[in-house]
Nucleic acid binder design. Sequence first.
DNA 1: AACGACGACAACCGCAAGAGT
DNA 2: CACTCTTGCGGTTGTCGTCGT
Length: 419
Amino acid sequence: MGGHSCCYKQKLRKGLWSPEEDEKLIKHITKYGHGCWSSVPKQAGLQRCGKSCRLRWINYLRPDLKRGTFSQQEEDLIIELHAVLGNRWSKIAAHLPGRTDNEIKNLWNSCIKKKLRQRGIDPGTHKPLAEVDGGDDNTQSNSGKNSGTSDLQILVTPQLAMQEPTPSVSAVEKSLDESATSKSSAAPTRELFLDQFLANHESSSSCRSSNSMGYFPFSQASFAPDYGGGRTTSSALPISSNPLLWFSQTSRHLDVTNGDAISTVAPSLSSTILSTSMVPAPSCAADDALTNWYGGDCNSSRRSSVEDSGRIVLQSTCSSDSCIFPWPDLTPDKDVQVQLGGETEDLKWSEYLHGAFVASATPQAPIQPLYGDIKTGNQFPMNCFSTWHQNQQLQQQQLQASDIYGKDFQSVPLGFEHI
DNA sequence: AACGACGACAACCGCAAGAGT
DNA sequence: CACTCTTGCGGTTGTCGTCGT
């Protein structure tokens, strides 16, 4: 079957998505939610199968995606989670807000595996290559389904392995699953375990000598979030200098049931938070939703540029009716043009798209029910950005003097600049 | 400038599980 | 219980950009 029976019924497009297709899909899901994916292509006027639409949305168009390069800490977390969970990428992705299983899988296959081998670690078993016969890929053929099993004690982290009693793999998996699915309702003991696990992870990461990211200095208290709700977080938790990662870290500890608390913390784009606590404010007509989503304040004037670091900077120019993401003006035959130090440079569509996502403002259109069972894909908070944004100018002034933060950090505050 | 190698990433494919009938 | 449909997952392939020759 393969879920592609729909593809046989008519000649459907395959391959890369065009901007128009993206636009259609986004508009449709923005307005109606996706409902039944198999019906989305027809409803949205796409010559694609529902499966392809779903994949495109989940892996690329979803507004709560983080994008950007993985931080060292994220990589470490992936490695540790992989030791526990094996190739269950979706499970791993559940612990990395804003990251997709596909993204993590690609990272693993293209980058992390190589790094592990260079460190003399077999990526399949997470054991030293010397202990693995041959040390080749054959050894990892078992890693996918059996997911680590007995290797856990040596793999996850020394701290975790030394816990008394040592948690079984199933216990760790169970705890991980619960942490990803029911942050707000987990039993205290399990949550404690999760916190311990995560704290162990963080502390283990802090032992790494070659951490290019460094950790966020606690002395800069202005960066510390207001956790609202009094939810306690681990005081020993190092905060990454990368705020995207930082949001992710904090979001793992947040009680996401309190939307107000979220709004005072940070514009975490965690899908978990977004899907569980936020709904679009119904203050804008649905037809305007997309414009507002992408365009933010239509009265603002800005243009995009790419600095030497590659980050996208919103600077100026757009007409009052086209905003930063003027769909009608953006056709596939013309690349997005951005300013680069006075020079115009083409910008990859996807970069522009996600730059615009980051720069987006309030998605205020209520989802118009088109199906009985609506599964909205755009319930994410934008109104929470304002408080967070108030700190960004100060933060950016402070951080501009530092080179320890990655380009992701540079782009995000700018992205919210005009909200 | 042309070519190939390589890496990163997007997308496809096939399978399995769950829900509905 | 069998069947169909839908969704989700993981493996794999395809595409594109970059770099070195």
